[in-house]
Amino acid sequence: MAKTISQILLDTPKVDKVGVEERVARIQTRSVKGPSKSQGLKMVLNMIDLTTLEGKDTQGKVRQMCYKAHHLHDAIPNLPAVAAVCVYPSMVKLAKKELRNTQVKIASVSTAFPSGQAPLEVKIIDTKFAVDNGADEIDMVISRGRFLQGEFQYVYDEIAQIKEACGKARLKVILETGELATLDNVRLASDIAIHAGADFIKTSTGKIQPAATMQVTYTMLMAIQDHFAETGNMIGMKPAGGISTAKLALHNLIMVKEVLGDDWLTNEWFRFGASSLANDVLMQIIKNESGYYASPDYISID
């Protein structure tokens, strides 16, 4: 049973910032080597939402990215495909066509991404448009302005209505943590999103810095863990923005494993939103196989 907003406000714990930083720092001292590293890197590839969200996106760019989504680096056999491609609603139809007969899902941002500053009706139309064009997943943004004004009920209802507009598509709720200022706000926004019907909670749009810091991701993972302990329902997590190196991605995986456990280590429950991460991971995989440090000159551009 979903909680009401007043219940959420009562139940949401305060975040111990110093504690979070210490735990994250400990996780970042881990070093993954050898076969575990190879396995981890391939897992990272399989969890990526390959993303292009630019005003300058052309059909050619989207087509090329869709090809890359399931041909990451053909010189190495048996590499996994990425989990999904993430595009603007206007590109969903094209992406759907390019990725027919593959396992790669289509995610679309919606609700006037990235600002979210549009009337609710427009956001619902935006969402339905993407779903009707074949989006498997919807990445919505919350109204950060309303949240910071204390209109939590509005934020809650908005998420619930977008969830309804999604139909069968899975809903990822972007909190845009870089604009929420404190970890307490991040935790509260996470709890609101989870109870309003999010299938995934996601850190950022990638347009605002700081984006997916380990501290923020950890705070959101804790919200997911508490919800699971309380209800037994799993919620997915997607850090996005700023994760551009293989090392940082592996640290994120370690954190997910330690906080949530093995069940979350699949692309059904954990994703990376990234554009340049895939190439860095590929370079590490090439290094592991050849023994030489790799060069981006030999990998397709993203």
Partner: peptide, 8 residues
């Protein structure tokens, strides 16, 4: 040797 073999 690492520098000499570095592909970049």
């Amino acid at each position: 040797p690492t520098l000499a073999s570095h592909m970049d």
